[in-house]
């Protein structure tokens, strides 16, 4: 189910509603933030920490500290699809670099950058647990493994075609 997007202007009331759903449940902070991130264009705006703090009572600094600790969160705007390319050793020794280079060249962006149309953000990540079928990447929540430079580019193309619908 696709969350309604609040990407262009930060919809603070929506963030407050998500936080309110899990009030008084400290073990749900990760879930709150993942939901907010998915509905805020794959990033968490600075104002979100203020809003979550006022709803949950957790100090704002703690929330911001939490967001900046975990690799899966970003406070910078990212594309519709985040391509996370595994660079850990089991992927590395079976050709992850060539796959990463092919994707980077095809999209014309370096890791850490977003394509001009806002479709893709390219990132390196550590082990995604596909070691026995490496090299592997994640595109948002989908995992793709057993890649070659050629098949990786074909995969990105399929996302471009799907996204153009």
């Amino acid at each position: 189910m696709q969350e309604e997007s609040c990407q262009t202007s930060v919809d603070l009331s929506r963030i407050a509603a998500i936080a309110g759903r899990y009030k008084d449940e400290p073990d749900q902070l990760m879930r709150i933030l993942l939901e907010i991130q998915s509905c805020c264009g794959n990033s968490i705006p600075r104002e979100a920490a203020t809003v979550i703090s006022s709803v949950t009572g957790i100090p704002e600094a703690k929330i911001w500290g939490y967001i900046t600790f975990y690799a899966m969160f970003s406070d910078k705007p990212r594309g519709k699809y985040i391509i996370r390319m595994c660079k850990s050793a089991p992927c590395h020794i079976v050709g992850a670099q060539a796959v990463a280079q092919a994707i980077s060249e095809y999209l014309g962006i370096a890791p850490g950058e977003t394509t001009e149309d806002g479709m893709f953000t390219l990132e390196y990540c550590e082990c995604i647990g596909m070691c026995d079928t490496a090299p592997a990447i994640m595109i948002n929540d989908s995992v793709h493994s057993g890649l070659t430079p050629e098949s990786a580019v074909e995969l990105i193309k399929s996302y471009q075609q799907g996204g153009a619908e």
Binding site: M30, F69, Y70, A71, F73, E126
Partner: peptide
């Protein structure tokens, strides 16, 4: 989890569950 290897350490994992 949130993509942190250190959370495989048991007490870091507990901290993470506690928010």
């Amino acid at each position: 989890g949130g993509g942190a290897y250190v959370c495989g350490e048991e007490t870091a994992l507990l901290e993470s569950i506690e928010g």
